[in-house]
Computed example of a mutant assay.
Amino acid sequence: MRLVSFDAFRTLRLPGVRYVKPENFLQQRATVEAADWILFPEYWQIGALVFGLHKRIFPSLPSYLLGHDKIEMTRAFQAIAPHHVPETLIEANTPECAARVWDSLVAPFVAKIPRSSMGEGVFLIETHSDWETYLAKTPTIYAQEYLPIDRDLRIVIVGEQIVSAFWRLQSHDGFHNNLARGGRIGDAAIPAAATELALFLANTLGIDHAGFDIAMVGGHPYVLEFNRLFGHQGLGGQHDQLAEAMLAYLRKYSDHHEPHDPIRPNPILPIAI
């Protein structure tokens, strides 16, 4: 199995990987074309690799396309699991739309910049001044109901399996749960409803490398988002398991089989939506 990686860090534990600098991929076209898999390309390479050279990539094309923008991601979640998505309003950033969203949601609520990660670009809106500050920074309005939680779950899926799942306890700012923003790891039991939801979403949408953020409210799981390139802080000593899961998945589909096609979904686990 010939593997070419554009991210040396994330494929460090995989055997026999050929690393190519992303900016040199066309100069090393022969190496790229000979590969069975292209691993962790940059987003700007996707068109050339998938549609131009017809290469198989990991993470999957849906992982890139949906993971690149919270708006696309949320709309996909709403389509397949509407009762597991917090109330979310997506509008153009115009005065009329801003006023309508402000009147529709009860403060406090959450507003996000569509392309952001690690808790950056996430705002707690408590006053109209907060709202105006957010509007000045975002190209599109993405506003979501505030869930009464002090923690959430990070569920890491690689290939077709859960590699890691842990609680993220709220940071001292009273809002962010991200480890990059001061959140802490909790050791409470992981609810089956949360892992079932993450697997359902990943398999139905064709997501094969992601950290899903799931909130539990009264025993009911809500999906907040997923990160295609999730942080490794919470993995502890599970890096080898992550690499093993990745390698097993690539081997499984390296010959004449193709990974799950999201156009013809076959969910791993049924879930009430």
Results as ranks from 00 to 15, higher is better:
L3K: 02
F6Y: 10
V17D: 04
K21L: 15
P22K: 11
P22E: 12
E23R: 14
N24Q: 13
F25Q: 04
L26V: 11
T31M: 12
T31A: 15
A34L: 13
A34S: 15
L39I: 09
L39S: 04
Y43R: 08
W44Y: 14
Q45S: 06
I46P: 01
H54W: 06
K55D: 04
S60R: 03
S63F: 04
L65H: 02
G67F: 00
H68D: 12
E72G: 07
E72T: 12
A81T: 11
V85W: 10
I90W: 02
A92P: 03
N93V: 10
V101L: 13
L105C: 04
P108E: 03
I113L: 04
F123L: 10
E126S: 13
D130T: 08
P139Y: 10
I141G: 04
D150E: 11
V156Q: 00
I157E: 01
F166R: 12
W167D: 12
G174F: 12
H176S: 15
A180M: 12
R181L: 14
G182T: 07
G183Y: 03
P191R: 06
A192L: 11
A192C: 06
A193H: 02
A194K: 02
L199T: 00
H209T: 01
A210W: 01
F212P: 00
A215Q: 02
Y222C: 04
V223F: 00
E225S: 12
R228V: 09
Q233L: 15
G236S: 05
G237T: 15
H239K: 08
Q241P: 01
E244R: 03
Y249L: 00
D255G: 02
D255N: 07
H256S: 08
P267L: 11
P270A: 11
I271Y: 08
A272C: 15
I273A: 13
